[in-house]
Structures are given as C-alpha cells and as structure tokens.
C-alpha cells in the first residue's frame, strides 16, 4: 500500500527492563500513515510493554522514538496525546457513570467562558460517530448501558477526538461477538482510509489477516519476524509466534486434520 511514505512513528533499538526481567530488547517498529500494522506475539512476548512505551505509560531504558521525523521522548500519556498518539486500551478505560459525550471528551473537554461547552461537544460527538458510521442510539446515556461493541466504538471514537496521527488498539475485539468484531474491524479500516497510522495488538489471527497491511511478531521481548500481508499464512505466523514450526498448534492441526477428512 503506502509503504513508500515515511513512517509517522518509529522505534529503534528500544529496550525495557523490569528488575531481573528484560521485557524488551532491541526492538524496532514503525508505522506509516494510512497503514494498519498488527503487533502479535504470545503472552509475555512484550506487546503490552511496547504499547505502554509508545503511549507514554512506561519510559524505555534504551533506544530511540522518532515521531514525524524528529526524535521525541514521551514522558506521560498526556504527552503522547499532544504528540498525536492515541491509545485504546484493552480494558476500555471508559468511565461508566458518565455519558457518551463526557467519555469522548474526557481529559480534553471543550469549554467556553470557563464552563463546559456541552452543545459543541455533543455536536462534534455526533459528527465523529457518523464519520465512523457508528451505531450509538443516544450520546446522552451512561456508558454502562451500552453493549460491548458500542463501548469499544466509543473508546475508538474517543481516540480520534484530538486528531491523532497514530491510533493504537490493544485487543480491540477480545470480548466481542461475531457481528461486533466485524463492526470494529470496519472501524479499523475507516481509520486507515482517513490516513491514520493504526497499530493493532491482538491474539486473533483472523483479525490480523482481515485488516492488517504488515505484521510484526514479537517473541520473548525481541523482534521475531516481519511479514507483509500478502506473503503470510496462519502457519507461518504461528511458527513465528511460538518460535518453531513443530509446535503445539501445528501438532494439533496435523492430528485433527485426517479425522476431519475421514468424516
């Protein structure tokens, strides 16, 4: 796709250590505008740590972060937001007691004359949700009364409020049903169409193959492999994730396949 344009966010040789555990070592990673990059890996491979470094929650011990061509440091979530890196966290991070508008603008409320500009925020909320073709019946109901997919939609829409350049989605489909997953994947594609760099962290290989343009595999805190979407198969991915072509998943596949053929 747009592989010729310069990366909007790139990490070079990033490392992070927690006590005796080297969570990340010498990791390279970049995202270009209008591109969906999937970040996959087994539990404990360092995906979440990497995301937290990019969103300013953790500071890297070594390595360099380059945003829009210039080296930056991201000392906190606020700094990441101001740069233009938005993160949608796995556990949603919405305040259940507030309504949709309040959640969309949480931390970046619009004000006029010192008070909240509810009308402007509500208007923009509708525009934003329509741009994502999101189906939210009312923006004045508490988040708690929305379904899982709707909540995820709100969370993703919220990441767009500050006009970011990069959106990171941590396990966006983890708790969702079939239709809701499809809805969220549609959203991801719409983000790409709008020219955003999208980082998709997931366990779900079907999601990856459905929307990703490139795939990074993290393994034990290091760069495992990098694939373009056209030259990847589930087998290759699983092999890269687990670190062997002879693994539990492929063994199971070979055990069950003949049975399936007989039946």
């Amino acid at each position: 796709m747009t592989t010729t344009s310069a990366p909007v966010l790139s990490l070079k040789g990033v490392g992070k250590r927690f006590g005796a555990v080297q969570a990340l070592a010498d990791v390279d990673f970049d995202v270009r505008p209008g591109e969906v990059v999937a970040l996959v890996g087994d539990n404990g491979a360092g995906k979440s740590t990497l995301v937290k470094i990019m969103s300013g929650v953790y500071q890297p011990d070594e390595g360099e972060i380059v945003f829009d061509g210039s080296p930056v440091s991201i000392p906190g979530p606020k700094a990441a937001q101001q740069l233009g890196i938005a993160t949608v966290f796995q556990d949603l991070a919405l305040a259940d007691n507030l309504d949709v508008v309040a959640n969309l603008y949480l931390g970046q409320e619009l004000t006029s004359a010192g008070t909240l500009d509810e009308v402007e925020m509500e208007k923009n909320s509708w525009a934003l949700l329509r741009q994502l073709s999101a189906k939210i019946p009312s923006v004045r109901i508490p988040i708690a009364s929305l379904s899982g997919g709707q909540r995820q939609t709100v969370a993703i829409a919220r990441s767009l409020v500050g006009n970011p350049k990069v959106v990171m989605l941590d396990e966006p489909t983890a708790a969702l049903g079939v239709a809701q997953t499809a809805e969220v994947l549609n959203l991801v594609e719409r983000l790409r169409e709008n020219g955003l760099g999208v980082v998709l962290i997931t366990h779900n290989m079907a999601d990856v193959q459905a929307v990703a343009d490139r795939i990074y595999v993290l393994r034990l805190g290091r760069n495992g492999a990098e694939f373009g979407i056209d030259d990847v198969t589930t087998d290759k991915l699983v092999a890269a994730i687990t670190g062997a072509s002879d693994n539990a998943v492929s063994q199971r596949a070979s055990r069950t396949a003949p049975k399936g053929a007989e039946a």
């Binding site: 305040a95 259940d96 949480l106 970046q108 409320e109």
Partner: peptide
C-alpha cells in the same frame, strides 16, 4: 466545569481518567 467533570470521572474510573490525561 472541567474540574467538576474530572471529579466525577476520577470517582467513576480512576484508571480511565489517568489514561485520558
């Protein structure tokens, strides 16, 4: 006001509030 909104947000979900800056 923003301050008031933040009070409700922190009371509702402190972690969400922190992450939203």
């Amino acid at each position: 006001t923003r301050f008031g909104r933040h009070v409700f947000a922190v009371g509702g979900n402190e972690e969400a509030s922190r992450r939203s800056g």
